[in-house]
């Protein structure tokens, strides 16, 4: 039985969290609907009626192709990274092979290394393989960064929650692959979906890498299109706001879509024993 006081406290805390995260978003929304061309930040809600800003920005920023490019890159990165992270996390967590801890240490290093320290050599590598100014020049490094974290994440799940099930499956005669696909993957659905959401958000929002890799081509991602609205000296905040909203809407849609199966997964897991 949850005490009434705890319920109230829960609501208060949740409302506070919602306010903190929704507040700025609301601000951006008001900004986006403001009068275009005006200098300075204008949060006057009465003037927030310029719905045409979105169409203007879409046109000017070339958002159609930018969102398409972002979508192609991010989808491939998410799918490939999840597919690689699950078996690798399983191997590191539950299989015995020489060099296991060394590989794990290497992966941790991949999480710790900031992109900025690697971007130049990465760019040179991509150029050497003639991959610069091409989807792959963004996809490959993003997969690399994502998998480093993904293996870490899946390993944590397999290590703590699956030991006895894995042993049961082995004793039942299942090989490693059968154990993974028939026992663990159905069980790890919520973890995999969370991972997919995280990968999507991170890689969609990634700016520096595509900027460097795609600078010599017509390709641009949504965040790159967004930045064109940030002037060097004068910024049109109404347009910038509208462009920001356009950039994050796909993330919100993906989140809502995935979240539905996601909560279902969590509930299914909660009655396990």
């Amino acid at each position: 039985m949850i005490a009434r006081r705890d319920v109230i406290l829960g609501y208060v805390l949740l409302s506070l969290a919602a306010l903190i995260s929704l507040g700025p978003l609301l601000g951006v929304m008001i900004l986006a609907l403001g009068e275009p061309g005006r200098i300075g930040i204008n949060l006057d809600i009465a003037n927030a009626t310029n719905f045409g800003n979105f169409a203007d920005v879409w046109e000017k920023g070339d958002f159609g192709p930018a969102i398409r490019t972002s979508f192609i890159i991010t989808s491939v990165v998410v799918v490939v990274s999840v597919i690689l992270s699950v078996p690798a996390g399983y191997a590191i967590a539950l299989m015995d092979f020489p060099g296991r801890s060394a590989i794990f240490a290497l992966l941790i290093l991949g999480i710790l290394m900031p992109l900025e320290s690697m971007i130049v050599p990465l760019f040179l590598d991509m150029r050497r393989f003639n991959l610069d100014n091409n989807y792959w020049s963004v996809i490959l490094p993003q997969v690399g960064f994502s998998v480093a974290f993904g293996v870490f994440w899946m390993r944590a799940f397999f290590v703590q929650s699956a030991r006895s099930l894995v042993e049961a499956a082995w004793i039942d005669g299942a090989n490693s692959w059968q154990t993974l696909t028939r026992v663990l993957v159905p069980l790890a659905r919520p973890q995999m979906l969370t991972l997919a959401v995280l990968f999507f958000v991170w890689n969609w929002n990634d700016f520096l890498l595509p900027l460097v890799m795609l600078s010599g081509s017509d390709l641009q991602t949504a965040p790159m299109a967004l930045v064109t609205f940030e002037g060097a000296r004068r910024t049109d905040f109404a347009y910038l706001g509208a462009a920001s909203i356009i950039t994050i809407i796909p993330v919100v849609i993906v989140f809502i879509l995935l979240q539905r199966s996601f909560t279902r997964g969590i509930l299914a897991g909660s009655i396990k024993e």
Partner: peptide
């Protein structure tokens, strides 16, 4: 001891 049944 904990049966280790496959929950799904």
């Amino acid at each position: 001891q904990n049966y280790a049944l496959y929950p799904q």
